[in-house]
Design a protein around this nucleic acid. Sequence first.
DNA 1: CCTAAGTTGCACACACATGTGCAACTTGAA
DNA 2: TTCAAGTTGCACATGTGTGTGCAACTTAGG
Lengths: 214, 214
Amino acid sequence: MSSQTGTRGPRSDAAKNRAALLDAARTELNQDPDASLEAIAAAAGLTRRSVYGHFPSREALIGELAAIGAARVAAAVDAIHDTDPVLDLALVGRLVWDDVADVRAMTRTVVRGPLHEQVLSSELGPLHARIVADVELAAATGAGRTDLHAETVARLIEGAAFTVLDESLRRPMSRHEGRRLVVLAGLGALGLSWRDANAVLVANADRLTPEDDR
Amino acid sequence: MSSQTGTRGPRSDAAKNRAALLDAARTELNQDPDASLEAIAAAAGLTRRSVYGHFPSREALIGELAAIGAARVAAAVDAIHDTDPVLDLALVGRLVWDDVADVRAMTRTVVRGPLHEQVLSSELGPLHARIVADVELAAATGAGRTDLHAETVARLIEGAAFTVLDESLRRPMSRHEGRRLVVLAGLGALGLSWRDANAVLVANADRLTPEDDR
DNA sequence: CCTAAGTTGCACACACATGTGCAACTTGAA
DNA sequence: TTCAAGTTGCACATGTGTGTGCAACTTAGG
């Protein structure tokens, strides 16, 4: 009542800087998981102090970054489906890899860290559910293993993907090879023999390991 | 020349305390990977200050702990062999699991951390080499996959083992189930179908998944 | 019993990063 | 041009853990 609400829209460069911060954080954290706010702010052309004008805390920044990434992955994966559970799993692997390839290091540290239980399990929950469903369907079809709980198999598959991610951080690996490895490792965890896994791979080369190595 | 070397053997309880420190570190770090020297010393019945009478730094303590553990694993694995590469891999998996089962959390953090490249790769180098050799032999025999470099397959197998370790930290898992999972996941990475992997498991149940769940 | 080995407690320096308060400044939008 | 949104620089508090120096103490071994 006393004072008019200072009506004045937010400045446009504010949003720009916010985006720059998220972008810089993505890049910096991908190089050094423990990059300081100082470094991130500098990379965004700002000061550490002003970071707090956009995010209440370091954790909030990283949290939002993770949420965005997770949402991207979820969207990409949601966009495609296949009735064959084995092929569906392979496709999911390929898509996730494509989305994560540029932020592998960052992905690893986020997934290993405390964020795992927070943002990721809520944002990526559907993805996990889909994998479980595929595993169950594959088991019912006779294509996948039935000797373990579907939930466990799903974890093995996800773990295999992370193993490939680790490997890709240990030595240079082209996007193409990454795709191939993720699919092969995943199908192996599903219970396919390596010959069967490769058969799936070549029969669907156009969708699993296309040459358009963008 | 000037002063007689104060000849007096080291006190016996010194070695005892040193061992107690290593033991406490093992236990504490297994519960909290970031346990402070304060906590470790207390668990050993000592003070943080006196830790520095035995180890020059925190890193040295953990380093020695890791070296001891790695040596234990290496020794256990060295003690057994099999000419069949597939079975040999399964045996290695079982033995490693047995040795690591009590220190899973600590193992994870050590292997994920900076020690990985130091102590572990030197101490566990032979183990890795053996896995690679088994993979190559299995490929030559026709039992294992030939679609990937042996080195890569070895990493996939090791990664599968770590995935099982992670899973065992997420939910309760008996030693018996752990053994079974490690072997199945490992053979899957090697390229066996889930049926073949299970066949190996049951055909060698006495050596792979004995009931003596000590 | 003597004495050196080992322990203790305390203080301190150091490093490092986060989060805040505040005054002065720059910039964008109306 | 004006003025609030946004940025900057600096200081400061806070927290947390490591590594050291030192005097006083306790204990094991000869």
